[in-house]
């Protein structure tokens, strides 16, 4: 191998590198159309992320069943907060009156225990 041959090759590489290449508008359009076609759609992305909840919901019977559970929970909370008189009377008859007894006077926040009377 001679030095002039190396120079010949270097000269050819220089010429090849100097080619100016800019994407045409047509190529840009095609590539962006491909990108749009290949892009995971928002619905499939959220579906993949929600698969755990889907499985959880299907285990309890889906959204209709969950709405029933929710309604029952809300009703229970409301009854617990504002029990009608008839409920108080029924509880007193069935379980007796309640009495509060303090075991640890200076243990703030944990000072009362409810026992059956």
């Amino acid at each position: 191998m001679t030095q002039p041959d190396d120079q010949l090759l270097a000269s050819l590489f220089d010429e090849a590198r100097s080619e100016n290449v800019e994407p045409s508008d047509d190529l840009l359009t095609r590539v962006l159309a491909d990108a749009d076609e290949c892009q995971p759609k928002a619905s499939s992305v959220s579906a993949a992320k929600a698969s755990f909840w889907d499985r959880l919901l299907s285990g309890v019977g889906g959204w209709p069943a969950l709405s029933g559970v929710t309604a029952a929970g809300v009703a229970g909370l409301w009854i617990g907060l504002t029990p009608p008189d008839v409920v108080d009377d029924w509880v007193a008859n069935a379980m007796g009156n309640t009495t509060s007894v303090s075991f640890v006077d200076d243990f703030a926040g944990f000072d009362e225990v409810t026992l059956d009377g």
Binding site: V21, V31, L32, Q39, P40, K41, A42, V45
Partner: peptide, 18 residues
């Protein structure tokens, strides 16, 4: 892009395609 961003492909294309 994979998460559905509509602008990511345009930025990537203009950056990488040349």
């Amino acid at each position: 892009y994979a998460n559905g961003d509509p602008d990511a492909a345009t930025v990537l294309t203009r950056r990488l395609l040349p």
